[in-house]
């Protein structure tokens, strides 16, 4: 395979590679390619970081603002369950 064909084949399995769900054999193949392709290496690192940053901004508990919760309970006719 040419270098660009390696880059293209990496792109196809990129999600599985960063999620760690790829077979060991394919992983090794990708790692060999990454060790001598700087651009692909940057794509993998920055893709990992992209996913990490989005995880980081949603790791806080998902709270519903108090007024939104109150209106939700009213719309569901559950207002008697609202604790004041």
């Amino acid at each position: 395979m040419t270098q660009s064909a390696h880059c293209k084949s990496l792109l196809d399995s990129l999600s599985e590679y960063v999620d760690g769900t790829l077979s060991e054999e394919l992983c090794n193949e990708i790692q060999r390619h990454l060790s001598d392709c700087q651009n692909c290496s940057i794509v993998v690192d920055t893709l990992r970081k992209t996913i990490y940053l989005y995880h980081a901004i949603t790791s806080e508990p998902a709270d519903v603002p108090r007024d939104v919760r109150e209106r939700l309970f009213h719309s569901l006719k559950l207002e008697d369950y609202l604790q004041h």
């Binding site: 792109l11 990129l14 999600s15 794509v43 920055t46 893709l47 970081k49 992209t50 996913i51 940053l53 989005y54």
Partner: peptide, 13 residues
């Protein structure tokens, strides 16, 4: 998923 992640990576880059 792959397309979304790659698109976001470009925007963040």
């Amino acid at each position: 998923l792959l397309r979304a992640r790659l698109n976001l990576r470009e925007q963040l880059s």
